[in-house]
Every structure is written in C-alpha cells, then in structure tokens.
C-alpha cells in the first residue's frame, strides 16, 4: 500500500476501506484524482495533438521551441501565451470537445476531449 502515501486526498478512513476492499477501492480513488496531462509545443507542433481528459484535470503545455506559442481555443474559452522553455497550465472545468491553435503559428492545431 506504499503508493497510497502519495495521494494526499486519501484519508485514514478510506485507507481502512481500501485495505479491506483492496484494488476495487484503489481504482475508485485513482479515477477521482486529478491528473496533470502534458502537451509539448515542439518543432512548431502540439504533441500529442489530441488528448482526452476529465473535468478537474490540469493540462500543461511545455514549450520546447525557442519562440513563444499560444494555446488558443477556437471558441475563445481559453488563451494561454507560453514563452520559450516555459509552461502554461489550464485546469479543465467543463466537459466538451475543445479545438485550439497557436495564434502566432496557426498551422499548429490541437484538440482536447473532456469528459465529466
């Protein structure tokens, strides 16, 4: 059960339940934990270009290029400017499919599919 230590949300009570119920509870806890999903901005492209995530997850764009890029939603829901060798984060608050692009280099396109 060493891995449960790394989950701050896990209470003593859920630890106990987890200990009793075993892997079934572990998977429930894991599913509820928010993830950080990385997307690289490299060679003037998003990689991976398509990601799936859940509400509550955080997207982290890591710019490996030597120029700034943006992650700009087509529906204007978000607009992050990410400087060279920096990261930009976005917490996903609603479900849906979001197409986005880089305003400076519009051939860079990506899609985020967010489920509840």
């Amino acid at each position: 059960m060493r891995e449960t230590v790394s989950l701050p949300a896990l209470t003593a009570r859920s630890f106990l339940i987890g200990a009793v119920a075993g892997l079934a509870v572990w998977s429930v806890v894991a599913a509820q934990a928010a993830n950080i999903i990385q997307i690289r901005m490299e060679k003037v492209a998003f990689a991976p270009a398509e990601v799936s995530a859940h509400v509550g997850d955080t997207l982290e764009w890591v710019n490996g290029d030597f120029v700034a890029h943006t992650a700009t939603a087509r529906n204007k829901d978000f607009n992050l400017n990410v400087l060279p060798n920096k990261t930009g984060r976005l917490v996903l608050t609603k479900a849906g499919t979001f197409d986005y692009f880089c305003r400076y280099h519009p051939q860079m396109t990506g899609r985020i599919t967010v489920t509840p």
């Binding site: 060679k43 003037v44 120029v67 880089c102 305003r103 400076y104 280099h105 519009p106 051939q107 860079m108």
Partner: peptide, 16 residues
C-alpha cells in the same frame, strides 16, 4: 527548416 515552419505560420497569421 524550423524557420520555414515558423514563417509559414507568420504568413497564415498575416493573412488572417
């Protein structure tokens, strides 16, 4: 080649 990719982006941006 990297420059070309960036500048193709600039061309599209300028067109917009």
């Amino acid at each position: 080649e990297t420059g070309l990719k960036l500048f193709e982006g600039h061309q599209q941006h300028a067109e917009h």
